[in-house]
């Protein structure tokens, strides 16, 4: 379980990116975080694993308070939080396998990792995950040889091999085409279900969010303005989050053509 209490971030420039956010995510729940750009979605996710240092407030992961941890304890806790990035953030010049195995770095000593001598159990797990996302044959390819969708699958494997209890997902589909976006979202949701993972997914595509998640949180200038089921998301709510606009086209129920690329 992940719990945020009064989480606040004020950047050095004086921008208030997060204003005392309270949020609780039970085990196994996938939550979509929507909001206009600059609303603080990315900051919120990064404050959880402290890639961005929160100014005040608390973050609790399964009862462990993260904001007060020292650097080595923080590294231990980071192992339990898998992160998936917008531009994939794979190490382009390393192979797919190295990228996946890099998710185990927190568990392996420096010299073993430097010499690429990961334990056999990690290697097997990496193969299993790559097989699960359909990229086993690409294991020895360099990451920069892959397409966008393939790279994001590798990114997912890297996050999952950490054996995390929560996934932090930052705009996973922003650099992908619509079809691949759906495939990736479906994969993330399925994997979370299989492993009973909680996840926060930052996403700007409202329709896509509605299609896949159980709960949607709307963020507007650093504060939560909506928290509810996808079905509750109507024009009023969208106007509250994004400002006035004609929303009739945006809100869609899960469409039917979706089934064909499920295979």
């Amino acid at each position: 379980m992940l719990r945020l209490e009064q989480l606040t971030k004020i950047y050095k420039t004086g921008d208030k990116a997060l204003k005392a956010v309270d949020l609780e995510i039970p085990k196994g729940q996938v939550l979509a975080l929507i909001g206009p750009s600059g609303a603080g979605k990315s900051t919120l996710i990064r404050c959880i694993n402290r890639l961005v240092e929160p100014s005040s407030g608390k973050v609790q992961l399964n009862g462990v308070e993260l904001t007060s941890l020292g650097s080595s304890a923080l590294r231990r806790e980071r192992r339990r939080m898998g992160m998936i990035f917008q531009e994939y953030a794979l190490v382009e010049r390393l192979t797919v396998m190295e990228n996946v195995l890099s998710g185990r770095l927190g568990y392996v000593g420096f010299f073993r990792s430097f010499l690429r001598k990961f334990p056999q159990s990690d290697v097997d797990e990496a193969f299993r995950l790559l097989d699960r996302v359909g990229l086993l044959a690409m294991a020895d390819k360099r990451a920069d040889e892959l397409s966008g969708g393939q790279r994001q699958r590798v990114g997912i494997c890297r996050a999952l091999i950490q054996n995390p209890s929560v996934l932090l997902v930052d705009e996973p589909t922003a650099s992908l085409d619509p079809k691949t976006s759906r495939q990736i979202m479906r994969l993330i949701v399925e994997l979370c279900e299989e492993r009973k993972l909680a996840a926060i997914v930052n996403i700007h595509d409202v329709a896509l969010a509605q299609m896949f998640v159980q709960r949607i949180v709307g963020l507007q200038s650093g504060a939560i303005v909506f928290d509810g089921a996808p079905a509750e998301l109507d024009e009023d709510v969208l106007t509250r989050i994004y400002g006035a606009e004609d929303w009739s086209e945006t809100i869609q129920k899960v469409d039917e053509d979706d089934e064909e690329d499920a295979a």
Binding site: N49, L51, R75, R76, E77, R78, R79, M81, G82, M83, F85, E87, A89, L90, V91, E92, R93, L94, E98, S102, G103, R104, L105, G106, F110, S113, F114, G155, R158, Q162, L168
Partner: peptide, 30 residues
Amino acid sequence: IDESQVEAIAATGAGRWQVMAYGILPQIMP
């Protein structure tokens, strides 16, 4: 270098030297 790759390695819970070996070194090798 591309900082996002470094950030991604740091997010896995890697140590300082591991971040260097996996996040930075491959990028500056050429």
